Deep mutational scan, measured.
Amino acid sequence: PKDQAKKEIEKALRNGDEEKAKRLAKKYGISDDDWKELKKRVS
């Protein structure tokens, strides 16, 4: 599910692991808009 994916990506971003977050986003098909939203929430 997308919500689970977003949680994992957000966690990776919080850990400062943007490479992992990007890989997860690609793997789960997270859209650019969702990606920006996640980045905003974390920063």
Rank of each mutant, 00 (worst) to 15 (best):
P1K: 11
P1I: 12
P1Y: 10
P1R: 11
P1Q: 13
P1F: 12
P1A: 12
K2Y: 15
K2P: 09
K2C: 14
K2A: 12
K2D: 13
K2G: 13
K2W: 13
D3A: 13
D3N: 09
D3L: 10
D3S: 10
D3M: 10
Q4N: 10
Q4A: 13
Q4K: 11
Q4Y: 13
Q4S: 10
Q4H: 11
Q4I: 11
Q4R: 12
Q4G: 08
A5V: 11
A5K: 07
A5N: 06
A5P: 05
A5H: 13
K6I: 15
K6F: 15
K6R: 12
K6L: 15
K6W: 15
K7Q: 12
K7L: 14
K7A: 13
K7G: 07
K7Y: 11
E8S: 05
E8I: 08
E8Q: 09
E8D: 07
E8H: 06
I9T: 02
I9H: 00
I9M: 03
I9D: 00
I9R: 00
I9S: 00
I9A: 02
I9L: 03
I9V: 08
E10P: 00
E10K: 04
E10G: 03
E10M: 15
E10D: 03
E10R: 05
K11F: 10
K11E: 14
K11W: 10
K11L: 14
K11D: 14
K11R: 14
K11M: 15
K11N: 13
K11A: 15
K11Y: 09
K11V: 11
K11T: 13
A12D: 02
A12R: 02
A12S: 04
A12L: 15
L13M: 04
L13G: 00
L13F: 04
L13V: 02
L13N: 00
L13R: 01
L13H: 00
L13Y: 02
L13E: 00
L13K: 00
R14V: 05
R14W: 06
R14L: 08
R14E: 04
N15R: 11
N15S: 13
N15Y: 07
N15M: 14
N15T: 09
G16M: 04
G16K: 05
G16P: 01
G16A: 03
G16Y: 04
G16D: 04
D17Q: 09
D17M: 07
D17H: 09
D17S: 04
D17N: 09
D17F: 13
D17P: 02
E18M: 11
E18A: 05
E19N: 09
E19P: 08
E19R: 11
E19K: 10
E19T: 09
E19F: 09
K20W: 13
K20M: 13
K20H: 13
K20L: 15
K20E: 15
K20C: 12
K20G: 13
K20S: 10
K20R: 12
K20D: 07
A21M: 01
A21Y: 01
A21V: 02
A21I: 01
A21P: 00
A21S: 04
A21K: 00
K22R: 14
K22M: 14
K22C: 13
R23Y: 14
R23N: 09
R23L: 14
R23Q: 13
R23F: 13
R23P: 00
R23E: 11
R23I: 11
R23K: 12
R23A: 14
R23M: 14
L24C: 02
L24I: 06
L24E: 01
L24V: 03
L24K: 01
L24N: 01
L24T: 02
L24G: 00
A25E: 00
A25P: 00
A25T: 02
A25Q: 05
A25F: 03
A25N: 01
A25K: 11
K26I: 14
K26H: 09
K26F: 10
K26V: 11
K26Q: 11
K26N: 08
K26R: 13
K27W: 11
K27Y: 14
Y28D: 01
Y28K: 02
Y28M: 04
Y28I: 03
Y28E: 02
Y28C: 03
Y28T: 02
G29T: 04
G29L: 06
G29D: 08
G29K: 10
G29S: 07
G29C: 13
G29Q: 10
G29M: 09
G29P: 01
I30D: 00
I30V: 06
I30R: 00
I30M: 12
S31R: 02
S31F: 02
S31I: 03
S31L: 04
S31M: 03
S31A: 04
S31W: 02
D32H: 07
D32L: 06
D32C: 14
D32W: 14
D32M: 07
D32N: 07
D33H: 09
D33L: 07
D33K: 08
D33N: 08
D33G: 06
D33E: 14
D34G: 03
D34M: 06
D34L: 05
D34R: 02
D34I: 06
W35L: 14
W35N: 01
W35Y: 15
W35R: 01
W35A: 02
W35I: 06
W35Q: 02
K36T: 11
K36R: 12
K36C: 15
K36N: 14
K36A: 14
E37N: 06
E37Q: 07
E37T: 05
E37A: 09
E37F: 05
E37M: 07
L38W: 03
L38C: 05
L38K: 01
L38E: 01
L38D: 01
L38T: 02
L38H: 01
L38G: 01
L38R: 00
L38Q: 01
K39I: 14
K39Q: 10
K39L: 15
K40V: 07
K40A: 13
K40S: 12
K40D: 15
K40N: 14
K40Q: 13
K40W: 12
R41K: 15
R41T: 10
R41E: 07
R41D: 05
V42I: 12
V42H: 05
S43C: 12
S43M: 15
S43P: 07
S43Q: 15
S43R: 10
S43Y: 14
